[in-house]
Simulated assay, not measured.
Amino acid sequence: MNSRKLNIAFFGSSLVSAYWNGAATYYRGIVRALHERGHQITFYEPDAYDRQQNRDIPDPEYAKVVVYEATEEAAHRCLTQAEAADLVVKASGVGVFDELLEREVLKLKTDERMVIFWDVDAPATLDRVHHNAQDPFLPLIPQYDLILTYGGGDPVIQAYEALGAQRCVPIYNALDTTTHHPVAPEPRFACDLAFLGNRLPDREVRVEEFFLNPAAATPDKRFIIGGSGWGDKPMSSNVTYIGHVYTKDHNAFNCTPKAVLNISRESMARYGFSPATRVFEAAGAGACIITDYWEGIDFFFEPEQEILVAKSGTEVASILAGLTDEQAKAIGQAAYQKVLSAHTYNHRAEQLEQLLYTKVNQQALALSGASVTDK
């Protein structure tokens, strides 16, 4: 197996800011793990959406961060710099000139340089292209060496391959043990149930169902909601809205409440096998997690032992009513042990390496005139 260390150019939304950027934790975990395995990563991110004004980490030691102006000229300069890479990654949802980048990175593909599309919101991408036969990304799908996703399982794999993808592989969210871990509780986050997530169109109805309705139905319980955009949302008096929660506070946010709620966006719940980053963040802090139901939960955690599952807001309220402190602590500890044993970013980076090296070997065999089955 070719195991050389790679110079990777990565075009994404932001590595240094989690502001309106739910993929930040995922990027940091993957990039850090790849760096620790000897690879060099340059992360190109646009100066957009006030992310640089709301940075929550300095430039990390595990990647070179290039922040470029939100102009076509600046994007093209970054693409020129990426010609020095062995591997070029275009992530979905950069937010600035996505169509340009998706088209232009493919011009960097050579026999020696792979180009990958990394979809951090495959359900949204697939829904978009299925509803628009003229979507400019659609004819590009077969041209990428690989399509990676951070969730979706067989439904996403089959959907991408039906659109002509050479290969589609999920690299699931995971735990970064260097940043997410148990800490001492903080009184400001004390409550019976906490939820963290930005207000998005395909999440809002589910937040009403799984969080706001149970809160209104259980006035004797205390609830906290964090994330951007909820300020004008009607809520019962036992719900406290705390706004954007910076990454440095996530551990305390997860460690302090009796339970932490995960609510999937509608599209991710529909495709299944799409655990949000916050699930692994919370598990890594030893939190007792209550999640809405989606297919594939048991692929990651054992229901009732390592995670609690609710199919409705009524079930959320019922779980809270019967959940003791001792039960919550036991479930949180079981989830913590599971992520350490099977769901860290080191596990994901190892999977990615094996995938990349297999692809490199296949390309080398093809160039030499031999078939993979001959070897």
Rank of each mutant, 00 (worst) to 15 (best):
I171K: 00
R28K: 05
E281H: 05
R51Q: 09
Y144E: 08
H39T: 05
V360G: 06
R222W: 15
V279A: 13
T110K: 04
E99G: 15
S371A: 15
R28P: 02
L365I: 10
A33I: 00
I289C: 10
T179H: 12
F43Y: 04
L175H: 04
T277D: 14
T110H: 08
S371W: 14
I263C: 03
L15P: 02
D56V: 00
E302L: 13
P185M: 07
G152P: 02
Y172R: 03
T80W: 15
A91V: 14
R113N: 02
D325L: 12
T240E: 13
L175I: 04
T42L: 03
N54K: 02
N251A: 06
L100R: 05
H180K: 10
T324M: 07
F280V: 08
H244F: 11
I242E: 03
V279T: 11
L101S: 07
Q305R: 10
D127E: 15
T314F: 14
P123Q: 01
G322H: 07
S3K: 14
T149W: 01
H244M: 11
R278G: 05
E83Y: 08
I242P: 13
N2E: 07
G313P: 00
A70Q: 11
V245A: 09
R270E: 09
V88M: 06
V65Y: 01
H250Y: 12
Q40R: 12
E204C: 14
K64N: 10
N198E: 12
P257V: 09
G197W: 09
N213V: 14
A334L: 08
C168Q: 09
E209A: 01
Y246S: 14
P201Q: 07
S236T: 07
A349P: 00
R4I: 11
N238E: 05
K221V: 11
V309T: 04
E353R: 00
N262S: 08
F195D: 09
Q134W: 12
L356E: 00
D59K: 04
A285F: 01
S267R: 12
A165E: 08
L261I: 07
A216Y: 10
N132T: 06
D127H: 13
Q354P: 02
D249V: 01
T291C: 04
R103D: 14
K338V: 11
T240P: 09
Q337R: 12
G231W: 13
H39S: 01
S14L: 03
S13D: 15
G152C: 03
P219E: 02
G197F: 07
K233P: 06
L126G: 09
I41E: 05
V16L: 09
E209G: 00
V89Y: 02
L175D: 03
A334K: 12
Y68M: 07
